[in-house]
Design a protein around this nucleic acid. Structure first.
Lengths: 191, 191, 191, 191
DNA sequence: AATGAATGAGATTTCATTCAT
DNA sequence: AATGAATGAAATCTCATTCAT
């Protein structure tokens, strides 16, 4: 094995940040190279092109995210417990590296259109949680799709609040409050 | 007078729809012209370029939105009443013309960076409502920034749910439920 | 006969001025229309297009210029008299309407390539004067081409001096001095 | 390093020639690329655009010209000596590379508007020479601005004469005659 | 006579990608 | 591994001209 690819990480990090700041379509190879302190050709040593780079970055992080999120699931846990855990996990993932979290949010539609109804899709996961909680009487009967959206909306918007400096980081400090809000909306009966 | 601007509306509508579908940077002038059934040059009779077109479309609709949203304000109304009204107004605006609503959401960061801390900014408006409600004891003492984000998150995510066909339109059908969710999160004491 | 073409003169004057200020290629139809206070189409009511407009403007004024210049010729006059008269005529034409004079200078190569070795060409005219003066012994034997260029250079550069505000107009005030310079260069022996 | 910039010189030379032949506004990027044997985009590797290319070419050569012209200055030399030297230098610069000389003439108004009253401006330099010569009694009292223009006019028109094949190159062959003409116009008293 | 929207051609510029070094 | 000149295609924009009004 030769020397480690010194610039690879730099290229990938620069790309990720720029994708968040200006969008994938708004970011050029030259933008990435400039920020990474390399020249345009260097990117092609490591990736086939811009779209492949987006895909690679997405899958690298999303896989990790999905695994951590899936691990929150446990049949014996109550709806309240799982939701609380989920919010914590989401916020921890965000705080760990906010640009990475934001990139996943930005890139998911572009990449996930191929993976749409995937079981790993957090929307699907939460939807199933809600359905089961209703069936088990943990929360009142209601439109499970709507509740899913509302909870997801609160979690995601909290990350937006941090990005625009309307909420003080770290986000994990707000996890309890947001989880409580989710349960309030769900109308959780038992604790 | 020369020919009346038959194609202006068509160009603007096509642009707006494409901006929502593929993003501003992902939409080319050619895309717009093709959908509008004109040649590329026609756009420049009416707008200086793509960025100016985005700005013009945004300001046109945002101004109308802001006026309607500001009109929900009335000093004698309770927090619950105003929030309920606001959700209704948001959802009505959405249902009226979902692409226009979505375009405003998509374009706001691009355009509003110049208008940031504007009083017309709905985030600001809701924040002030929350602060006053806390002061008047209508809702428990809490982080007003967080509550603001949570309510906004729910409202916006509901529109996303419709876009991805996870929620059945029209959105106004869900207004009552979403308003109730907002009040549940706020912990409204009086009704 | 209907109304007179009110805007025709305005278009032509605006075009002429812009051709001088920014060059023919640097001036667009829109530039002309804007300065003339009309719309783009109006020009085509009076002229076939930009090139034809240049040609028309050039020929209109050049014809008049050429006639006045040709009138300076008289067989019985001395070289000194004709040169003095010529400088006066040139400077009078310039002072009468400097933009017109400058336009003729700017456009001559573009238009005169068709008329090149024309007898009306002032260069040709002066060249013949010089040749005859040498033959008649009015001036010393010398390179007639060079003398021609030197005299033309002085006359034209004087107009440039006025344009760049290095010489005080009117130019006719300098006619005597420039004529004297021409004769000094020629080495005129008799007066 | 990547490939050495094989085509840069070719692009710049082609541009310079075309600017002289057809004017800057009459020359398209495509014209330049075609003559240089490259594609249109290649130009942008080396220059920001056409205007910047004009500026770069102008400054590169003008700086060299100005240095050589300034070097003709020496306090102990007579007006006649300096003028003779100046004409020689101008003509040598012209003969060395006529297109470069002509380009400087063509581009100077476009670029020099920013550098106008610069001391390096040859017009200024000659003006100062003339003023001093008058003060020192080397030439009769007269309008120094006019004399400056007349001398410049002769020198420049000589280069025009060569371009239009009315004067036989090389121009340096005519230097003595033109210098003599300048001194005749100035009315130099001492030799 | 004049308007000005629209066209069609082309000019300028950007950009992902390739490749010789 | 990295460079950066150059390409080829596409995007943005300009402009002379036409034509319905």
């Amino acid at each position: 094995m030769g020397r480690p690819p010194l610039k690879k990480k730099s290229i990938e990090r620069s790309a990720l940040e720029l994708f968040v700041e200006k969008g994938v379509d708004g970011t050029s190879i030259r933008d990435i190279a400039t920020r990474a302190g390399v020249t345009e050709g260097a990117l092609y040593r490591h990736h086939k092109g811009k779209e492949e780079l987006v895909r690679a970055l997405f899958l690298e992080h999303f896989t990790r995210f999905a695994a951590l999120i899936a691990a929150t699931q446990a049949p014996q846990k109550s709806f309240a417990e799982v939701i609380t855990k989920l919010v914590e996990v989401f916020f921890t993932l965000h705080d760990e590296d906010p640009p990475v979290f934001e990139f996943i949010m930005v890139a998911r539609h572009r990449v996930l259109d191929e993976v749409r109804a995937d079981e790993k899709n957090p929307v699907e996961l939460i939807y199933r949680l809600v359905k089961e909680a209703i069936k088990r009487g943990e929360i009142p009967d209601q439109n499970p799709d709507l509740l899913t959206e509302l909870m997801i909306g609160m979690v995601l918007q909290a990350t937006v609040g941090v990005r625009y400096e309307r909420l003080k980081p770290p986000l994990t400090k707000h996890a309890k409050a947001v989880a409580k809000a989710c349960l309030a909306v769900a109308g959780t009966t038992k604790r």
